[in-house]
């Protein structure tokens, strides 16, 4: 269960931390890269479903099944995204302390807020040195929650609502999602619009996420990219 007494992973002391920490366990890393891959696929196929940009091709429909294939890939990827997310939520309960950061930003903690301000200053190039964080910093946590977690869950819900419309009345996704989601937005057309806006929301997240990872990998005091590959966070500090 969630350990509510855990402290913020921030080291404001000047004591050197030289020992690497095991942050991202295997399921988290697997989930991350699976999600990254299907996210890419979902964006491309989703974009094409809403706006099939290819030029007109001519002939009997028997000869082609392009739209059908794109939709199939989109739906399969959607299932993977949703299942991976379910596993990931499960892991937030049973995994290590870092596995729940993105779900439960500790807004109430003074240390968390202090770090939030410091991180913003760092990104505004006011601070000359980054914080030392084992997991996510405060700003990253809230961003991951607001943009990624909320965004993905929104896309999963609206996506299955649309899928339910295609599957038809009585299908599991219609019963579980379409039935309440569609009236909430008004009509299927509006769900489409919001699902697409949600995609762009996640694309923006993705741009910022990738940039920040690379930037922080270079500029901060800890490793980023490799951590999501091998799970270990290394610190570059010489230790003062």
């Amino acid at each position: 269960m969630l350990d509510r007494t855990e402290s913020i992973d921030v080291d404001e002391s000047s004591a050197p931390i030289s020992a690497p920490v095991y942050v991202y366990e295997v399921p988290v890393r697997l989930w991350h890269w699976t999600t990254a891959a299907v996210f890419f696929v979902l964006c491309v196929t989703g974009f094409l479903i809403g706006d099939p940009v290819w030029p007109q091709f001519i002939g009997q429909p028997y000869d082609h099944f392009l739209m059908g294939e794109i939709r199939l890939v989109h739906f399969v990827s959607g299932y993977i995204l949703a299942l991976a997310m379910l596993v990931r939520i499960y892991w937030a309960f049973v995994g290590n302390r870092y596995s729940r950061e993105i779900f439960f930003p500790k807004l109430w903690s003074p240390a968390w807020r202090q770090q939030f301000v410091k991180t913003i200053r760092w990104y505004f190039l006011i601070e000359s040195e980054s914080g030392r964080e084992i997991g996510h910093n405060s700003l990253a946590q809230i961003t991951m929650f607001m943009m990624f977690v909320v965004g993905v869950i929104f896309e999963i819900i609206t996506g299955f609502a649309l899928y339910g419309e295609a599957s038809g009345y009585g299908s599991w996704s219609y019963t579980l999602f379409s039935r309440w989601v569609v009236p909430l937005f008004g009509t299927g057309q509006e769900v489409h619009t919001w699902h697409r806006l949600g995609m762009w929301y996640l694309v923006i997240f993705m741009i910022v996420h990738v940039y920040m990872v690379i930037r922080e990998d270079i500029m901060s005091r800890q490793t980023m990219l490799s951590t999501m590959i091998n799970g270990w966070r290394y610190f570059k500090d010489r230790g003062q």
Partner: peptide
Amino acid sequence: PHFDAGEFVESWDDLG
């Protein structure tokens, strides 16, 4: 079937 094939009318009164 034309939808699934990806065959769309692109402008009014075109071949599609």
